[in-house]
């Protein structure tokens, strides 16, 4: 379980608070969608989940470990995977298989285990056969799937994704969403920043942020019932209230 307690964050000491007292919990195997207008602090929030950012006040706990505690840093980074918005600046390897092997290599796993994970994770995202491809020549959708495979290879319990469907064509988008929706069933909790309200439909829980605060939380049906509130912060409500 990830527990966020009264999290406050600002980028510079004199700057205004970006996160203004956020508390939430993320259960194991849950699928949480995070929505909110641009600049409301969604990305800042998820970067706290694996200690890329540390709270100015408040605390974040991952399976009982505090992110501010440097001794648990490595374990926290392994437990909470992060898929960034731009896959281009997340892919480190020259070839597909080497990129997936980057994380397990950092964990110091033996070569045979790295090979097993690379094969498993590429299969999980449907990229078997592309092992030797130069990462530069992949399509946008394939890059996104590769960055997901690279995170899966760490064997995480949670994966936070920052707008994983941005800039993708409908088919690629569907592939990414299918994988994201499958993972909670395999025991990996998903925290998913979404812009398109239709992407939220598969989530167990929707969190709505505005101006550094949590505005609403609940099942998609519960959240989309507050159409007026959502519209007032610049979000549109999907037709049919987000029901499938």
């Amino acid at each position: 379980m990830i527990r966020v307690e009264n999290l406050i964050y600002r980028y510079e000491p004199e700057a205004p608070d970006v996160l203004r007292g956020i508390s939430l919990t993320i259960e194991e195997g849950a699928h949480t969608a995070l929505i909110g207008p641009n600049g409301c602090g969604k990305t800042t929030l998820i970067r706290h989940l694996n200690a890329l950012l540390l709270p100015v006040a408040g605390a974040v706990w991952v399976d009982g470990m505090k992110t501010a505690d440097t001794a648990s840093l490595r374990e926290i980074r392994r437990l909470v995977g992060m898929v960034f918005q731009n896959p281009d600046s997340q892919i480190v390897g020259m070839t597909v298989e080497e990129d997936v092997a980057f994380g397990p290599g950092n964990l110091g796993l033996p070569s045979a285990e790295i090979r097993r994970r690379v094969d498993d994770c590429l299969k999980a995202v449907g990229m078997t056969g592309l092992e030797k491809r130069n990462t530069h020549t992949l399509s946008g959708g394939e890059k996104r799937l590769l960055s997901l495979a690279g995170v899966l290879a760490m064997d995480p319990r949670y994966i936070a994704l920052d707008e994983p469907t941005a800039y993708l064509d409908p088919a690629a988008k569907q592939r990414v969403l299918d994988i994201i929706r499958r993972l909670p069933g395999e025991g990996i909790a998903i925290i998913h920043i979404a812009h398109d309200m239709r992407d939220v439909a598969g989530a167990d829980r929707v969190l709505v942020m505005d101006q550094g605060r949590l505005l609403l939380a609940g099942t998609p049906a519960e959240v989309f019932r507050n159409a007026e509130l959502l519209t007032s912060v610049g979000l549109d409500v999907p037709p049919g209230g987000g029901f499938k």
Partner: peptide, 13 residues
């Protein structure tokens, strides 16, 4: 960093 990189020995594929 998010993928656990830090200086020091790492293993290869």
């Amino acid at each position: 960093e998010a993928r656990g990189y830090r200086r020091g020995p790492r293993t290869q594929l």
